[in-house]
């Protein structure tokens, strides 16, 4: 019966269909596996932009230890990173550099905006040199409010990001 279905003329179509079916079958588990891998090895870029970096440092201190949630505080190269934690105020001088850093990172990449300054400009809403939030420069995944956010808040922001990654389509980037 199969022989009747697969004639030399439509063999290609059939193989293509088969591929689609196969893909459908393993897409979910594969995506899940890929995302699972991403969740537990988020590497933040080492870019400090303002005073929130103090609490970012505190978050990886022994008391809060963000590493147990898979946010690896590592001073690696930009090309190995997949997370930007924007730690506070972005000034007009820093904004092009932030964009440059973001553009150089490989896909997939995620952004956490930490602190009131990174979200809206915060205390510096009327300063002449501060951007009113970073979402005009790079797309943001998670906002972590506070001035500065406590390390617990930052950790929760990271977990929210992990939740979000879990629900993301993995294949967009495969």
């Amino acid at each position: 019966m199969i022989k009747d279905l697969v004639t030399p003329e439509n063999a290609n179509v059939f193989v293509g269909k088969l591929g689609d079916i196969l893909e459908k079958a393993i897409d979910k588990p594969l995506g899940y596996a890929i995302n699972w891998g991403r969740i537990w090895s988020l590497w933040p870029v080492h870019i400090e932009t303002a005073c929130c970096s103090v609490e970012f440092g505190a978050a990886s201190s022994p008391r809060y230890d963000v590493e147990r949630f898979g946010i690896i505080e590592a001073f690696g190269s930009l090309r190995q990173c997949d997370l930007v934690v924007v730690q506070g105020t972005i000034t007009r001088k820093m904004a092009p550099r932030l964009r440059l850093v973001y553009d150089q990172m490989p896909e997939p990449k995620y952004v956490i905006a930490m602190g009131a300054c990174a979200i809206t400009g915060g205390l510096y809403f009327d300063s002449y040199n501060v951007l009113p939030g970073i979402d005009g420069v790079i797309p943001v995944d998670v906002y972590v409010p506070g001035c500065p956010p406590r390390p617990e808040t930052l950790i929760q922001g990271c977990m929210l990001l992990q939740e979000k990654i879990k629900r993301m389509k993995a294949r967009k980037f495969v």
Binding site: T89, T91, K93, L123, Y124, D126, S127, Y128, N129
Partner: peptide, 21 residues
């Protein structure tokens, strides 16, 4: 200058108490 936020200019627009934060 990457974190120059113009604190001194802002201080001219706030009164002595609201300058604190």
């Amino acid at each position: 200058g990457y974190v120059h936020r113009g604190e001194e200019k802002m201080a001219e627009y706030r009164n002595y108490i609201t300058n604190i934060p």
